[in-house]
Structures are given as structure tokens and as C-alpha cells.
């Protein structure tokens, strides 16, 4: 488990996505352990969200604990389902535009992205719990969670686009170099830096010159699709917080959508 957290840490620090690590235009971040850690962090944040229901009912209500459990289970599900919904079309278009990114690389990249998102989300857990403890207002809690999730999503997607850019970059470097580069490179002027010490860029740093690839436009469009699907997925999987006074259910009726409800919550927050 600790090893998996270290892998996640490597991704957050940008060690796993340095140019030297992407040498062959492939990304080598692990999937298995990282997914477990990601699910765990998602569950932690789910518990933080569910804390609102437990505290509002004074901890005596069985339903509130069910809500907490449901949130802990549903939160990782939200992210992985969003990925599952958007992955097939991403793969198809990625292949259509002739990107060299293999299916496995795409999956690795996306799991790493989820790792970043859920790490950020979980790190806001203490703030969410604190506000759960002290807040009665249901609209406020909804908006706070939307805000935190939006921030986590933004950072995760930024990570994805930057890493993709680096992959393209690493491939260009690979193409311009003869296979026997270590001996033929003159005076050690190797473009792919072997020592990661000279490569202090973080996970979000933009490296080198801009390249335009069709694969990148595919991913750019996909980022928008992912955000929209994720937002609506959170609506489909609701309740996460548990509206006070409503009975516990695993899922609610089909009605309305995420965006209408956010506007509604803002209005309610001001309207009392």
C-alpha cells in the first residue's frame, strides 16, 4: 500500500512524467496499485461528504451512516464511470487521427489523471468535514463540493494535457535521434536528458516548444466532454450529501440535471 502511495506521489511530483521517463513515447505509470490508491482516496472524500448527513442527524440516525457508506462507495464510482463512458470514443478518435499512443498508454495516462484528481479532492476533505460540522445550509454544502470537485477536475485535466504534450515531445525527440544515440550524440548533447536532476519540471510544467498534433485536439475536445459527463454523472449518482429530511436511497428518481440544480442552489443560498 505504501509503495502504491509512493507511485502516486511520483505522479504528483511529476517524476513519472519527466521526458526521461517517457523516452519511448510510452508512459510507464503503473495501473493496478495506483487504481487501488485512487479508489481509496475517493472513498476518503466520500466519507468526508457523508459526514454532513451524520452530523446533521446527531449521529443517531441509521440512514445517515448508510448515506456515508453510499457516498464512500459512489465517489470512486463517479470518476471511474465517467472514464468508462468517455474512454471508448476517446480511443476511437485517437486511433482515427493516427496517434501513436497505444490503448495501454491511454489507459495508463487516464488512471494517472484520476490519481491526480482524487488526491486533490481528498486533500480538501478536512475542509469539507469542518464545514459539514458547522453548517446547516444544504445548498452551501452542495456548492462547496461542486467547487472543490471542479478544482480537482481542472488540475487533473491540466495534468492530462501537459503529459500528453510531453509524450508528443518525447516522440519527436525519439524520431530525430538515431537508435544508437548514446554513442552518436556529440559531446553528450543528448536532447533526452538522462539525468532527471537536470529536469526539475513539475507535473504541470510546460516543456519545450509547442507542437500541434491531431491527437492533442482530440484530447482537448475530450477534456470538455469529460467535464460535462462527470458533472452529469454526479447528478445521476446522487445523493452524495443527503438532503436533510429526505429518506436515504441509493439513487434518486430521474429528473432535472446537474446544471439546473447548481443554479437553483445558488438561488436558494441567497434566498434562505
Amino acid at each position: 500500500m505504501i509503495r502504491w502511495f509512493k507511485q502516486l506521489d511520483g505522479i504528483l511530483r511529476g517524476d513519472a512524467t519527466r521526458l526521461s521517463a517517457l523516452k519511448d513515447g510510452r508512459i510507464e505509470t503503473p495501473i493496478g496499485g495506483l487504481s487501488v490508491v485512487t479508489v481509496f482516496l475517493g472513498a476518503v472524500y466520500g466519507v468526508c461528504i457523508g459526514a454532513y448527513a451524520v452530523i446533521r442527524t446527531g449521529g443517531a440516525d441509521h440512514d445517515a451512516y448508510m448515506q456515508m457508506l453510499a457516498s464512500a462507495l459512489k465517489l470512486p464510482l463517479l470518476f471511474f464511470l465517467t472514464l468508462a463512458v468517455t474512454l471508448p470514443s476517446l480511443y476511437v478518435f485517437n486511433a482515427l487521427v493516427g496517434s501513436r499512443l497505444s490503448v495501454l498508454s491511454v489507459v495508463r495516462l487516464l488512471v494517472a489523471m484520476l490519481g491526480v484528481m482524487l488526491a486533490v479532492l481528498a486533500s480538501f476533505g478536512p475542509i469539507v468535514v469542518f464545514f459539514s460540522v458547522s453548517t446547516e445550509s444544504y445548498p452551501f454544502m452542495k456548492l462547496l463540493n461542486v467547487l472543490v470537485a471542479a478544482l480537482a477536475g481542472f488540475l487533473g485535466l491540466a495534468f492530462l494535457l501537459r503529459t500528453l504534450h510531453r509524450l508528443v515531445l518525447a516522440q519527436i525527440v525519439l524520431d530525430t535521434q538515431p537508435p544508437s544515440s548514446p554513442t552518436s550524440a556529440e559531446g553528450g548533447e543528448d536532447i533526452v536528458d538522462d539525468g532527471s536532476t537536470d529536469d526539475p519540471a513539475g507535473a504541470l510544467d510546460q516543456l519545450g516548444y509547442g507542437t500541434t498534433g491531431k491527437a492533442r485536439s482530440v484530447f482537448r475536445v475530450w477534456v470538455i466532454v469529460f467535464s460535462l459527463v462527470g458533472a452529469q454523472m454526479s447528478w445521476v449518482l446522487r445523493p452524495f450529501i443527503g438532503k436533510p429530511g429526505m429518506e436515504f436511497t441509493w439513487f434518486r428518481e430521474r429528473e432535472s440535471n446537474f446544471f439546473v440544480d447548481v443554479l437553483d442552489s445558488i438561488a436558494k443560498l441567497f434566498g434562505g
Binding site: D9, L12, R13, G14, V116, A119, V120, A122, S123, F124, G125, P126, I127, F130, L155, F159, P200, A201, G202, A203, L204, D205
Partner: peptide, 19 residues
Amino acid sequence: FAISLPSFFVINTILGLRD
């Protein structure tokens, strides 16, 4: 301070400022 620190730490890390 304690409640605000975790998110600050993680975002610092992502921005490459961990060192």
C-alpha cells in the same frame, strides 16, 4: 492551519514545488 494544509501540500506538489 491544520485544516488548510493538506490541500496546500497536494497542490504544491502538483505544481512541482515539493522540494
